[in-house]
Design a protein around this nucleic acid. Structure first.
Lengths: 247, 247
DNA sequence: CGCACACTTGAACCCCCTCAACCCAAGTGG
DNA sequence: CCACTTGGGTTGAGGGGGTTCAAGTGTGCG
């Protein structure tokens, strides 16, 4: 409800939504120069999504692209009996909807209050056609996600539970956007979401974190934050090096 | 050593390698019109890869792009202790090397005799700049791979061994390029490669196939081919529907 | 205060892995 | 021609990492 910069949102200036967007520097939008921002702003619609709301549903017609400007969403797929695989978490600056098919290949749900830009697909396609630099950035983004997806396949197919959790903590640590990797790692997602992301159960995630804590590798000031105590050890564990038999 | 079509490779006609390429219609190359093929052919180098040869090594400088024109390659990542995850199999028409970073994010090995086109990255980038249609096709390709990768994450994270093998068989069945889905499915890869693709062990793959065979869901005329006998059941199993308690 | 929800912890189980033996087809060389 | 080797595949027995089931412990919020 509280807008930090209400005065600067002059309705007459159409480029404002994009020009003043804090996510721009973290996003594909930065491929468009200031003087061309109006084209982008014209097809963008700002939206607030409540925590828990699913704004992309797998299998439904893919009508829009999205760009997260605040908050975190989880991307996931479901099996008919309810088994869930979280394919990734998307934060500020993340571009969503890159699917060629005419239906979404995954669902997306806000795990905390989210603000995003919505672009209708045909309109954004037109913009893309005029700004090859933006299309190039999209290709770049897609490649990065592909690399991340391959890394995740390695995790899901071949890593042990402890290696998975260590990998997750290290990755979350690097995902803190503005500053560099900090020892203090926020976990906006629940244990259940972490479990569905790592291909484990809630209990295994909880037990593994407890184990790390007992071994003084991490500390848990609260349920939604972790402090890295032994970064080198976590890095080794994440990389899949044979763990020292320190029970 | 043996060239099948030595006579048609007239050195004076530079477009020949591409114009006569059987893989063109299955590949991103089809985005380039006939009269522009010379530009592409000029930067392409044909290569034969022997079975078992690794022509992309994870972590080495990414100097080239590749396009498979014949045979099958496996794409994989390794952990330091040798654990392997196959992230995919690439056949005729498949484009390789889509990584933004300056080093390859995965390795690639020919699992049967392979013929491919090699493009140096800077040269192909120049061609891309002149043919936005080709870049668009690349983005499309990347999106499709992303969707496949997400599907594979669901498999690796949440499916049972039988569901994984069923999914693999059904997918292989659809992967037969020229004709539509046939009941006769070739398996160019070994059990070990299937296992590393599905996040299982050789033994589990073998046992599961034996089980399918005993249940008359498939037949195995040889080690490298499978015949689908009960497609509907396999589809159900692959989709993750609760299996009938038929032992 | 008390309900709901997320998380933790314990005990038993099970699916898949590990280890091992064996089969089989294709070379290979004497 | 046959003994031997080699590599991929199958099958069996046993064990373990993670799941399942269940109970208990916070903890935020009306």
């Amino acid at each position: 409800m509280h807008r930090p910069l209400p005065i600067r949102l002059a309705p007459a200036l159409a480029t404002e939504p994009c020009a003043s967007c804090g996510a721009r520097e973290h996003s594909v939008c930065s491929a468009i120069e200031d003087h061309d921002l109006a084209r982008l702003a014209a097809v963008a619609v700002m939206r607030d999504i409540r925590k828990g709301d699913t704004f992309i549903e797998e299998g439904t017609p893919a009508t829009d692209f999205f760009n997260i400007t605040r908050g975190t969403v989880k991307l996931f797929k479901l099996l008919p009996d309810g088994r869930q695989q979280v394919t990734g978490f998307a934060g500020m600056g993340h571009f969503l909807g890159l699917a060629v098919s005419d239906t979404y290949a995954f669902s997306a749900e806000a795990i905390e209050p989210v603000q995003l830009c919505r672009f209708s697909r045909p309109k954004l396609r037109a913009v893309l056609h005029d700004f090859p630099a933006l299309e190039e950035r999209l290709l770049e983004t897609a490649c990065n996600e592909l690399v991340a997806a391959q890394e995740q396949m390695l995790l899901l197919g071949r890593k042990t539970a402890r290696e998975r959790v260590a990998t997750f903590l290290v990755a979350q640590c690097h995902a803190v956007l503005p500053c560099g990797p900090a020892e203090h790692v926020p976990l906006p997602m629940t244990r259940s979401e972490i479990a569905d992301y790592l291909g484990l159960t809630i209990e295994t995630v909880s037990r593994t974190l407890s184990r790390f804590k007992a071994d003084k590798r991490i500390a848990t000031p609260s349920n939604s934050e972790v402090v890295i105590l032994d970064r080198a050890w976590l890095d080794d564990m994440a990389a899949g090096h044979a763990e020292t038999p320190c029970t």
